[in-house]
Computed example of a mutant assay.
Amino acid sequence: MAASTSRSGGGHRNQAVWPGYMARYEPLARLGAGMNGEVFKAWDTKEKRIVAVKRLSGTGTTGGDDLIFSGLQEVWRECRCLRTCAGIPSVVKLLDKVVPKVNSDDSFLIMEYAGRLNLRGYMQRRAHRRRRFSEAEVCRIMKELMEGVNSVHGTGIMHLDIRPENVILDDGTEDKTERRPKNKKGAIQDGELKEDDIVYKIGGFGISQKKERGPKQPEVTIATAYSAPELLLHSCEYDERVDTWGLGCLMADLLSGTGMPTFGPDDSEEKIMSKVFRVVDPKCKEIKDWAGYSGIAAEWKSKLPRQNKSKLGRIAAGSKTKLLGDPLRRRFPFWRLSSAGFEVLSGLLESNPAKRLTAAEALDKPWFQ
């Protein structure tokens, strides 16, 4: 289950206050809060195992966390998506659900406990210790995640929230059958992960949905630094490639080595768009060539970043100050990322959805072979 940080800054509570119908599960630690619920590490007193419990916000929520309300319809949708993906090894498994009799109360999803750290925390830990990811490491991580997302898409599900907070790391060193687990033999005692044994699992299916027939899909109103350009522009013409955009952002994060979002932090949609197009489509030509662009509301088209005419004039004049080459390539030069790797990165971070790589297409690229 993904453990992410509450956007409101209200995620300060460490103790779970659960209703009586959750007595079976004993809370051990609060892992974090995402957009639509808190996540706790808990002990299943019946099955005698460690689990992750996601509390989905009903009107019974207390404590000031800015969580999206999740009625029974949203709870059932998330359960359906997780059950549809149940056979995929790289997706966190849904074990059970606890739905109250009163719709205004909180609901709970019982998930497998997939690990003590998410990818954001791991990247920040590496950045703090100045241990950048090598291209080989990035390739291995991306291949594992790409295969997982490709399998999710094979079921007809779109995740819609691919980001490091929703990727959980399991290095196999925690004993999940003990209430107060001890590290298994061979684990590194200072809390560091056994990096060669890490398995990456995808969670955070809170806004996921089944793909509708035809080009039109329900509007996604939640914007993050990992949202595809078509979602930032509030288009309803999108498909699975919104997830491969998120994977491209994640790949850029791994390569940058800062531990921070490439197009973040999450801010207004306009600021995120400005950062995105400055790097991947400075003249906004590719997105405007997309067939779905005509259906975008004028209000959102007007929020696309405008060109700096003086800079364009210097470039046209052949001034020595002109910026050479692709801005994405300048950010990740040859010494940092090979041509084969850049082919994947640029294919994922394509602002025109029709030209963006699908997960299956990306996996066929030489970089992954």
Score class of each variant (00 low, 15 high):
2 A>K: 06
3 A>N: 10
4 S>T: 13
5 T>P: 01
12 H>D: 11
13 R>H: 15
13 R>Y: 12
16 A>N: 04
22 M>D: 07
24 R>I: 06
29 A>C: 10
32 G>I: 04
34 G>P: 01
38 E>I: 02
45 T>G: 10
46 K>I: 05
47 E>N: 13
47 E>M: 02
55 R>I: 05
57 S>K: 02
57 S>P: 01
58 G>F: 15
60 G>P: 09
66 D>Y: 08
71 G>D: 01
75 V>H: 00
81 C>E: 07
82 L>P: 13
83 R>L: 10
85 C>T: 11
85 C>W: 03
90 S>F: 05
90 S>E: 05
91 V>P: 04
92 V>F: 05
97 K>N: 08
99 V>Q: 13
102 V>W: 07
102 V>C: 08
103 N>E: 15
105 D>C: 15
109 L>H: 00
112 E>I: 04
115 G>R: 01
123 M>Q: 03
125 R>F: 11
126 R>F: 11
126 R>C: 12
129 R>S: 14
133 F>R: 12
134 S>L: 02
134 S>I: 05
134 S>N: 02
141 I>W: 00
142 M>I: 14
144 E>R: 14
148 G>S: 07
154 G>T: 09
155 T>N: 09
157 I>T: 01
158 M>W: 10
158 M>F: 12
160 L>Q: 13
160 L>P: 05
162 I>H: 06
163 R>I: 03
164 P>L: 09
168 I>E: 03
169 L>F: 13
171 D>Y: 09
173 T>F: 06
173 T>Y: 12
175 D>C: 02
177 T>P: 06
179 R>L: 04
180 R>N: 12
187 A>C: 09
187 A>W: 04
190 D>N: 15
191 G>P: 02
194 K>S: 07
199 V>L: 07
207 I>W: 04
211 K>N: 08
215 P>Q: 03
216 K>C: 06
218 P>L: 05
221 T>G: 09
222 I>Q: 13
222 I>K: 09
227 S>Y: 08
228 A>I: 00
228 A>W: 11
229 P>D: 06
233 L>P: 07
235 S>H: 14
237 E>M: 13
245 W>K: 03
246 G>Q: 04
253 D>L: 12
254 L>W: 00
260 M>K: 14
260 M>N: 12
267 D>T: 13
267 D>P: 08
272 I>K: 00
272 I>C: 02
274 S>T: 10
275 K>F: 04
279 V>R: 04
281 D>G: 02
283 K>E: 12
283 K>A: 15
284 C>D: 02
288 K>F: 01
289 D>S: 11
290 W>K: 11
293 Y>E: 10
294 S>H: 09
295 G>L: 11
295 G>K: 13
301 K>S: 09
301 K>E: 10
301 K>G: 03
303 K>C: 08
309 K>Q: 14
309 K>M: 13
311 K>S: 12
314 R>Y: 15
317 A>T: 10
318 G>C: 10
318 G>R: 06
321 T>F: 08
324 L>Y: 15
329 R>Y: 14
335 W>Y: 15
335 W>V: 10
337 L>E: 07
340 A>T: 02
340 A>M: 07
342 F>G: 07
344 V>L: 00
350 E>L: 05
354 A>Q: 14
360 A>S: 12
